[in-house]
Design a protein around this nucleic acid. Sequence first.
RNA 1: GCGGAAGUAGCUCAUUUGGUAGAGCAUCAGCCUUCCAAGCUGAGGGUGGCGGGUUCGAGCCCCGUCUUCCGCUCCA
Length: 515
Amino acid sequence: MASNTTEDLFKNIISHSKEYGFIFQSSEIYDGLSAVYDYGQNGVELKKNIREYWWKSMVQMHDNIVGIDAAIFYASYYLKASGHVDAFNDPLVDNKDSKKRYRADVLIEDHVAKIDAKITKEVEKARQRFGESFNEEQYRSTNPRVMEYQQKIDAINTRFKAALEANDLVEVKQIILDLEIVCPISGTRNWTDVRQFNLMFNTQLGSVSEESSTIYLRPETAQGIFVNFLNVQKTGRMKIPFGIAQTGKAFRNEIVARQFIFRMREFEQMEMQFFVRPGTEDEWYTHWKEKRMTWHRSLGFPLNKQRFHDHLKLAHYAKAACDIEFEFPFGFKELEGIHSRSDFDLRNHEEFSGKKQQYFDPELNENYIPYVVETSIGLDRMFLAIMSQSYVEEKLEDGSERVVLRIPPFLAPIKCAILPLMKKDGLPEKASEIFDKLKFDFIVTSEEKDSIGKRYRRQDAIGTPYCITVDHQTLEDNTVTIRDRDTMAQERISIDEVQRILREKVDVNTALRKL
RNA sequence: GCGGAAGUAGCUCAUUUGGUAGAGCAUCAGCCUUCCAAGCUGAGGGUGGCGGGUUCGAGCCCCGUCUUCCGCUCCA
């Protein structure tokens, strides 16, 4: 059980997640689906609590942020407008000798870049030759060799563009063959056919297939927010700056999906799009960067576990972007992204839909398309971060070992276990009385099988922060002991106080107040 | 997706060269005990990932397939 390496540790976290009802592989009895997972009885509670903490901190705590729940089906033109249909479609080709995979468009573009480099070389040579009097533009348009290169480039680009537009992958392969492009590794021209990898899932709307039209499962929750921007703004009489939040499933057909629930084909996002006046986006970007980091820090994990990572290469929609990374057992990886998306999305939706996506700003007395700052966090990744950070294999003073999940109490699946010391003398009955009292406020559980020590360990393993034990003294003076998961220390308290004490200890508001 | 490795009870593993599967833990029932795992007795649970082939006979050999892990590749 002991984890000697971080690889062991990660494996143990995965099997612990299964053994204790947090995460199961999906469709397991049918051999499973790759990179699809189900949440079990404890996982669903933890996940729900994380979602709720996020929702409260974003929506409930801000009078200018509201939530929505938009559909998972996207009309294809939605995604055309968002850039996803194009950006999520990569023509890929493999070299059979080196077994390396390339994006066909990148291969061709690289080839073009090489020809372009030859032109530059010619130009530089000429510049040295002619000195001061050199006219680059004239040289480029008259020198036969340069012109020949340029014509080549233009011809390739024209042909490639036509092939892409016609979605003609056979032609794309032919271009690669005609250009005699070789694999940089193997140096051969032994290519497979070019294949389209559609990273989005599609399906048909309409029960009769001939009449149906292709629709997509959303690859991110954000677009549902953008297309509802005016609905919410108008019906909620929202004034800029304001935000719209949403949690929900998104779907991506990852080429490789691994590392447990870190990269799944079906996953859940928690996103908030914040609409701001153009020109103020930089300060809001900074604002949300800090806000979100504070949220992560509020869970009480070591500060060196999270860090910012600024993007140098930006996505098709972004103006500025950074990640909040978490140190998983397999290294620092993206947990949340904060993006300054400019007016890219709303402007495109305006263009594609023909419907104005503008806001009238009474202070400026003018209309504009708002700029957007996005915070987008993966709920499953957050779940994994909490699991990895909470999972501890502990060596106790008496030499024995225990596995304990030190989940922040307000996120723990079960808040309290009620345990009769023995299965007789009326102790189970007393325990069930307490259960009935607490069940209205907390998710509690009760167990009477096995020795008390074993039951404590079981609760430790699923992260239950408190155990209440009913013993013989309980029957005499109406007191119980309450045991702390992390310190294993016990305290005797009156049954009448249990509810109040538990509420203090596991209340999400305590965390919210620190934000 | 490619290459390598693996897939036997819920979990961890065993079954010497092919001869119709076992253990520990877990589970369930009962007994005993009880404040930090591993007391006693008994029971249930496997068409050996799935499909096909070779063989008189396959968990063990061969092929395919699915899943997982490692490496590569891709990535918003």
